[in-house]
């Protein structure tokens, strides 16, 4: 049976124009347009491109929900078996649009979706876990190879053929680990890896660590005697009984607790629920993790202006980076709104 394929491209690849046309809203052509024509050729007898959804990059970026909804409507209407977006190479807005629409189509229509991007396209980090993103070079000079890889992977996905590891298939891994029995045990593989590392040969870790972002340091506080300082902790210090049921590990939430009028954190009123360290000391005196007692002394002495009335707490053990980042953003917004000047954050 011939596959029915729908493609997504931007205004530029549709031949509508460059930046001057980037505000164009979504539309549909019931035929193959631009790179979709090459996809149509590559499919050969296996399928045909039934339609091409086109949207300006700025429009998609600025009206992401409306754009997604409208595009999905067009795509659903054609009931395709397979969906391609891009490739976007290193175009940031286009990459985000391709990633977003491919992820949404995969989720809403349940069909295989493939896009293509250069490793530094921001769309890769945002959408790699939600759609297949084939690795491309950074510009359209790699169009032919990109489309060949996308079509090959797309066909494979439709036929339910088992996939080899992401690296071998040529797409960005989606953070999925498959369990299987290896003929060599972990110790043997680790020693092999170490020997390769020592002899400066290529080796590949079996457990990649997340890569964290860097930010420019904030300006220092100029007049500490007038500054409001907030306390935040990932050390799991909460009011006794853990009223918000913050998880002991892999936290999905954080708590905000009023400490106005509290001079000292005693075991009668606070405790630690952190599942990643020995809580004996923290439960005898929570100040060893969340130092309210000494901060009150320093506040009275006028070392700094005021201790902010609330503390924010979570448990930082096994906590997903995405959750921790979200907590940080939400806490940051509240502190900004309340005019807090600096933060002391303790971690265990």
């Amino acid at each position: 049976m011939a596959l029915k394929v729908v493609c997504y491209i931007n205004q530029f690849f549709a031949g509508l124009g460059g930046e001057d046309m980037a505000h164009t809203g979504p539309c549909i052509e019931r035929k193959a347009v631009g790179p979709a024509m090459q996809i149509d050729n590559l499919l050969g007898g296996d399928g045909r491109v039934a339609g091409t959804v086109i949207c300006g990059d700025s429009y998609y970026g600025e009206h992401i929900e409306e754009a997604r909804e409208k595009c999905i409507e067009y795509i659903r209407d054609m009931s395709p078996d397979l969906f391609f977006a891009g490739p976007a190479f290193n175009a940031g807005r286009y990459g985000v649009a391709c990633g977003d629409i491919a992820a949404a189509v995969a989720q809403k229509l349940g069909i295989p979706c493939v896009t293509g991007m250069y490793s530094e396209n921001p769309g890769v980090e945002l959408y790699r876990s939600k759609t297949f993103i084939v690795k491309t070079v950074d510009s359209a000079r790699g169009m032919k190879q990109a489309l060949e890889k996308m079509v090959e992977l797309g066909k494979k996905l439709v036929s339910n053929e088992p996939l080899r590891p992401a690296d071998e298939e040529g797409y960005f891994h989606r953070g999925i680990r498959k369990n299987y029995f290896h003929e060599r045990n972990g110790a043997q593989r680790a020693v092999d890896m170490l020997l390769r590392k020592i002899s400066e040969e290529d080796y590949r870790t079996e457990y990649e660590m997340p890569v964290f972002k860097r930010i420019k340091p904030a300006e220092p506080v100029k007049d500490l005697s007038k500054a409001t300082v907030a306390l935040v902790t990932s050390g799991g210090i909460v009011p006794r009984g853990n009223p918000d049921r913050i998880r002991v590990s892999s936290a999905k939430t954080y708590g905000k607790y009023n400490i106005s009028g509290i001079e000292d954190l005693t075991p009668e009123i606070f405790e630690s629920v952190h599942g990643g360290y020995d809580r004996v000391w923290a439960n005898e005196d929570p100040d060893v993790v969340l130092p309210v007692d000494v901060l009150r002394e320093m506040e009275r002495e006028g070392v700094f202006g005021k201790l902010y009335d609330y503390v924010f707490t979570t448990t930082g053990t096994g906590t997903a980076v995405a959750n921790a980042e979200r907590f940080g953003r939400e806490i940051g917004e509240q502190l900004k709104k309340d005019g807090v000047d600096a933060v002391i954050l303790t971690s265990t």
Binding site: M209, F212, K213, R214, I215, P217, A218, E219, P220, V221, V232, S234, T314, G316, A324, E325, R326, F327, G328, R329, I331, G332, E333, L335, K336, V340, D341, A342, V343, I344, L345, T346, S347, T348
Partner: peptide, 30 residues
């Protein structure tokens, strides 16, 4: 968390923790 608070609020955040390499990795500035 430390990095996102600093980035969002635009105020200095000092992290106090024992495992310095983790603070370096997550992107704490102070």
């Amino acid at each position: 968390m430390v990095r996102e608070i600093e980035a969002t609020a635009g105020i200095p955040v000092v992290q106090i923790a024992t495992i310095v390499p983790i603070m370096l990795t997550v992107g704490a500035n102070r």
